[in-house]
Computed example of a mutant assay.
Amino acid sequence: MPFSHISLRAGKPAAYRQAICDSLYGALRDALDVPEDDQFMVITEHDAASFRYGAAFGIARGDDLVYIQITLFDTRTPLQKKALFQRITERLGTSPGIRPEDVFVTIIPSAKENWSVGHGVAQFA
């Protein structure tokens, strides 16, 4: 039950944004075996003045940088997370063609009881 927030520079066409969502969903299915149609994502676009990055950690990032923040159950292992990082980078490289240097991913673990996915019910508590 991941929830993903994707941030990127403004100006990309709808097909590019859709490819990011499709590739991210595919990576989540590949690495974490998320259920079919478990696609809870939001994309925010930012003008250049509101979207900053640097070359920290020896990585030469560019204007196609995409930040992906994934909140998911705190039951995932470090091995699963590493596999997810790899699959996201591979899939985004294929479509829409984002360089590995421009894929920045963070995971926020959350206890299952912290989720309500509708009807005001804590479905996983």
Rank of each mutant, 00 (worst) to 15 (best):
A125F: 07
M1Q: 09
C21H: 13
S50D: 15
R99Y: 05
A56Q: 15
D33W: 10
G120H: 00
A31C: 08
L79N: 13
S7M: 14
E45T: 04
I108H: 10
F124E: 03
Y16I: 05
T75C: 03
P78W: 12
F104D: 08
A55T: 07
F57I: 05
T106Q: 08
N114G: 06
F124A: 05
Q18A: 15
V66G: 02
L65Y: 01
P35L: 10
I68L: 00
E101C: 01
A111N: 12
I59V: 14
L84A: 03
A111P: 13
L92A: 10
T75G: 03
V34C: 01
S110E: 07
P78E: 12
I43Y: 02
A55V: 04
W115Y: 14
W115E: 11
E36L: 13
K82N: 15
A55E: 04
G118L: 02
Q80W: 07
R61G: 01
F104V: 07
A83S: 06
P2Q: 09
L24F: 00
L32Q: 05
I107W: 00
G62S: 13
A55K: 06
I20Y: 03
Q123S: 07
E45Q: 08
R52M: 15
V42R: 12
G62D: 11
T71P: 00
E36H: 10
V117Q: 04
A83K: 05
A10I: 13
Q69R: 15
V121M: 04
L65H: 04
Q123C: 06
G93S: 10
R29C: 13
V121P: 03
E36Q: 10
R9M: 09
Q39S: 08
Q39M: 09
L92P: 11
P96G: 05
E36V: 12
V117I: 13
I43L: 07
P100M: 02
G93C: 07
L92K: 09
D64C: 05
A48V: 13
D64A: 06
D47I: 15
P78I: 13
T89W: 01
T77S: 10
V105F: 08
A56P: 08
A60K: 08
M41D: 06
K82R: 14
A111W: 10
L92H: 05
A125Q: 12
L72P: 05
P13E: 06
S23P: 15
R87I: 11
K112C: 14
F124P: 00
R61F: 00
R9H: 07
G62V: 04
E90F: 07
A14F: 11
A31R: 08
S116D: 04
S23Y: 11
T75P: 03
W115M: 11
S4Q: 07
D102F: 03
L65Q: 05
G62F: 05
P35M: 09
K112D: 14
G118Y: 01
Y53H: 11
Y53A: 02
V105A: 08
A83D: 01
H5D: 11
P78M: 12
D74V: 06
T89G: 03
L24W: 01
I43P: 06
A15K: 11
